[in-house]
Design a protein around this nucleic acid. Structure first.
Lengths: 376, 376
DNA sequence: CAGGATAATTACACTGTGTAAATATGTGAT
DNA sequence: ATCACATATTTACACAGTGTAATTATCCTG
């Protein structure tokens, strides 16, 4: 999923195989038209080495349900989008209505690829709240029925689901390395419509990432009512919906303005103070979460990353009140990256590419699969 | 680590190998004197089948640091203890003093096994708070130096460390199946000196379990001071130290009475009410934790498991205030098992047996290793 | 003792690996 | 143009471990 390719030496190192084995495997993958190799001279003497990339001739479909809309995108394994369609999808939509809406859009996609003689090799869809034991608390749908229904709308195309924050985290991490130079295990925390995190484990495949529903941690007993029915949840204080009245902007305005929506404002001192208090609570909840699942680095995206750095210090203050052993920059590395608002379904497209590689009829333990995942 | 052995059919099924491969592997392991097989008739007709167990001729060492004491135990792979020594070890001990204490006890162990011509094949030690990024918050020692020092006190014996609650959870789960018939992924929560949990993942090896420092989740802003320096931590309300004044018993008395210490009391109604409130807070924190790491089942051990069932309902009430989607017995299975107080170092001994099997110079991916782990 | 049922073993073919030798492919000097 | 050198890739060989299916072993019942 790193989407930029690799040298043979790197593939051999990271997949724990010799270059002899990698050579055999790449020959096989080249015959199956899954990879491309470009020989290039990288030393003063010696034979040119091959830079291996995934084949561009493979087309995948990414589908996202976020920002009150359903987005479809067709593209290649590098993530280049060739087709995008977005339709409104209210969070209150019934499962039946949603399936109908999906089928219509899927028919449009099938028509678009049919005309061009393109075969979709893989589809992936990201859904907020997906993957929890006990069902999806945000879209309380019958996921088995949904998988069957959506599968029927895309006959012959393998369809995989994932949690939205997992797709977002993987997309930020691997497809936008600029500004995301974090390595090793870390927590990716996103404050948007929902407030959720994902544990990113570099050694694990993307589908082993765990979504963190931190937004429904109760951090104030008998506090503000939350959409989930409880009182005092972090999300009741820190979601975009919670702060939009504070900064005087509607949800729709935020979506329209996209990245940097905070820059377009002049937030008055009273509002900034309230936003600092909200960030303190975010830090308190973050410390509680890190007590349960300790990682040395946290990446925060969403509106807090657009706040002035002086204001973001409130997160550290909140952390200091809950994190076992206290907070210091030596013990926990805090980073902020700007959100990528309104780019759906790019994250899902990248996840579809990942799934194609992961599921490409290769035995999980084989060197071939390991090598291919290094290229991805 | 299930410590009871297995039939060949089960080994083949669980390790994804054919019985032919299992047969070859067991022949190898029998030649290395690692397993024993007992043929027994299990059907009316047909050949007797073999029940495979780990060899009893292998001796391991378990070491636990808990309950203000350091315990050593020598035994076999089944967990039968042949030698036990316990010495007082204050939580405020310096690393240097601890290393000296350890060396003395280790010399006693070496003498005991030397006289009997026994070779220790593996040692394991469980330490509260072990394994966290950023160091051990409970014993703020230099773990690298400690590993070197303790390794020198036990020359020639591989030594592995683990977190105390992980060793406890694995011990309860696999060595005392009576009263612990939970299957599948679950959270094991223990309220004792510390309040901690561990995610038990049946599909993963024991060393992939994750410790959950739920005790230091802040559930009451500006609440009771905790030993960790923060205010309002769960542990400040629910550790044994927090409740011993409520029930009028000292820590030492509790340790002496062992299991069933609550039965020996008649707790008055006012104290019971306070204990219910404390269990409510436990439930609130538990719900927060499960929002982050969703599992369908929770096992609670420690003093709450000794409370009347009517009082334990307060945990469900607390859960209902925080768990996303609310609490119901259909969505989350709550079980209680009695604590096993004062049996240290049995849990560490079992973990040593597990480590011996896991690390027995076998390639991680090999069928041989998979088969052996099924027997363990 | 023979037949039937079940478990364990083993011959055979296959797959994928690492090692090391062989081959290929470039640059720079002559 | 040729040769030496450096680096990358390929491939012959040996090895290890697997599944399949046939063979052998071991019990019980009549």
């Amino acid at each position: 999923m790193r989407s930029k390719g690799a040298f043979r030496t790197g593939i051999a190192r990271d997949s724990n195989l010799t270059e002899a084995s990698v050579s055999r495997i790449l020959n096989e993958l080249r015959r199956e038209n899954l990879v491309e190799e470009k020989r290039q001279q990288t030393s003063n003497a010696g034979a040119p080495t091959a830079f291996v990339t995934l084949s561009k001739d493979i087309t995948v479909l990414g589908i996202e349900l976020s920002n009150s809309r359903l987005s479809f995108g067709v593209g290649d394994l590098k993530g280049t989008l060739d087709y995008v369609e977005r339709v409104p999808a209210s969070p209150q939509l019934s499962q039946q209505d949603f399936e109908r809406l999906f089928a219509e859009s899927a028919a449009n996609v099938r028509e678009w690829v049919g005309v061009r003689g393109i075969t979709l090799r893989q589809a992936a869809m990201s859904v907020p709240g997906f993957g929890r034991e006990g069902g999806n608390p945000i879209y309380p749908w019958d996921m088995r029925r949904l998988a069957l229904s959506l599968g029927e709308a895309l006959p012959g195309v393998p369809l995989t689901f994932t949690n939205s924050v997992i797709a977002q985290a993987a997309f930020h991490r691997y497809s936008h390395p600029a500004g995301y130079d974090i390595s090793g295990d870390h927590l990716f925390l996103f404050a948007g419509h929902g407030v959720a995190g994902v544990i990113v484990n570099d050694a694990a495949p993307v589908d082993a990432f765990s979504a963190f529903e931190i937004g429904h941690m109760v951090i104030e007993r008998d506090g503000l009512p939350c959409r989930c029915g409880h009182k005092g949840c972090l999300e009741a204080y820190t979601s975009l919906r919670a702060i939009s009245p504070i900064i005087g902007l509607s949800d729709a305005d935020i979506l329209t303005k996209g990245d940097h929506f905070m820059e377009a404002l002049s937030v008055d001192p009273a509002a900034r103070e309230v936003l600092r208090e909200r960030q303190f609570l975010l830090g308190l909840a973050l410390g509680n979460a890190l007590n349960l699942h300790s990682v040395p680095k946290v990446v925060i995206s969403g509106w807090p990353s657009l706040m002035p750095e002086a204001d973001r210090a409130a997160i550290a203050h909140g952390l200091n009140q809950s994190l076992l052993g206290g907070y210091s920059p030596e013990r926990l590395e805090l980073s902020f990256i700007e959100p990528l608002i309104g780019n759906d379904p790019k994250a899902a497209l990248h996840y579809a590419a990942y799934c194609f590689v992961r599921d490409g009829a290769l035995d999980e333990k084989s060197g071939q699969r390991a090598a291919l995942e290094e290229i991805a």
